[in-house]
């Protein structure tokens, strides 16, 4: 149970066969070392081919004038896809490129807005779910199983299911909300500019809260029971115990879960593409990039958008790895 937290890098404990048994026999060590690289080679080769090389090619395409029909004829154009000043003469000029494209900034805004709001709601709701699942009650196993269902459903299927539930004419959501009097007229959830983003957020919250809850639950289960017992004996109010004892203890688990979800939310594609197609209110960075790459025949421009999104996520990943490492160091060996 040492490493229940998501994605904490494995530590170096307990496994150094060399150190224990085979140190004097150096051919054995050498043989094991050789096989280590032999064992790793196929996996590393596949990763280099499927991740490393395509990433470099994407970055390269972002510096060219490539078009979908002529990838081979791509010529280097420098940073023109990102930033270009066109001088019209006599002091007049205009900036072009991704960094001056309002549509790109709209996609950035949508993505950040969606990520912040949905991850925030999922964290709070996930914490509530986790606290409930951590309590002992009849039928807990059943509830735990039920919670896994949204997670198991493919994103496309959940998008379609909710699109139907949110249908303006025949949807059950309007029916319910009108029955209890929250709305007086049917709402076109996925089409109306005011609600489209909220429709996306609702579906995402439904689909990923269980995942959040399970990650936080893993953290909760590592809190030793005697902590609560001591608090109970001292007569401390349960609410205070939660804020002063439980929350600080599970903070690392929550932090890891939040970063994982945030990274996932920033690259959102499927849900938005299927639930609210061609809607400027919800278009995310990934959708913007995919459209430019394959629908608008602006391959280089789309590559530039992909590269920028990659840089944002890489930055957050480095930040995360740093945190995870600090966490490892803090726990000691």
């Amino acid at each position: 149970m040492a490493n229940v937290q998501a994605g904490v890098p494995p530590t170096d404990k307990a496994l150094d066969v060399e150190r224990k048994g085979a140190r004097p026999r150096s051919d054995l060590s050498r043989q094991r070392l050789r096989s280590a690289w032999l064992f790793l080679a196929p996996m590393l080769l596949v990763l280099a081919l499927v991740a490393g090389w395509p990433l470099l090619k994407t970055i390269w395409f972002s510096l060219t004038n490539a078009s979908l029909s002529d990838l081979e004829g791509a010529e280097f154009v420098g940073l023109r896809n990102y930033w270009e000043y066109v001088d019209y003469g006599d002091g007049e000029g205009e900036y072009f490129g991704l960094l001056f494209d309002p549509q790109w900034w709209n996609a950035v805004y949508n993505t950040v807005y969606y990520s912040v709001i949905s991850v925030a709601i999922e964290t709070v709701l996930g914490l509530v779910f986790a606290l409930v699942l951590n309590a002992e009650f009849k039928g807990r196993g059943f509830v735990r199983a039920a919670v896994l269902i949204p997670w198991a459903i493919p994103t496309i299927v959940s998008a379609k299911m909710w699109a139907w539930m949110m249908n303006d004419q025949f949807g059950i959501l309007n029916d319910m909300l009108m029955a209890i009097g929250i709305i007086s007229a049917p709402v076109a959830w996925t089409a109306s500019p005011d609600t489209a983003m909220w429709a996306v957020i609702i579906v995402d919250v439904w689909k990923t809260t269980p995942f959040m809850a399970l990650l936080i639950l893993a953290g909760l289960q590592m809190v030793p029971g005697d902590v609560y017992e001591a608090a109970k004996i001292d007569g401390i109010h349960p609410v205070k115990v939660f804020w002063k004892v439980t929350l600080p203890l599970i903070r690392p688990a929550i932090l890891v879960a939040v970063i994982f979800r945030a990274l996932d939310a920033l690259r959102v594609f499927d849900l938005i593409y299927v639930l609210t197609p061609n809607n400027t209110q919800t278009k995310s960075m990934s959708v913007f990039a995919q459209e430019n790459l394959f629908q608008f025949d602006k391959f280089a421009y789309g590559s530039a958008a992909s590269t920028l999104l990659f840089l944002v996520i890489a930055f957050i990943t480095l930040f995360y790895i740093k945190i995870a490492r600090l966490d490892l160091g803090g726990r000691g060996k």
Binding site: L55, L56, R267, S306, I313
Partner: peptide, 8 residues
């Protein structure tokens, strides 16, 4: 992000 390798 999958989109980062999509073009390549």
């Amino acid at each position: 992000p999958q989109i980062a390798v999509l073009a390549g």
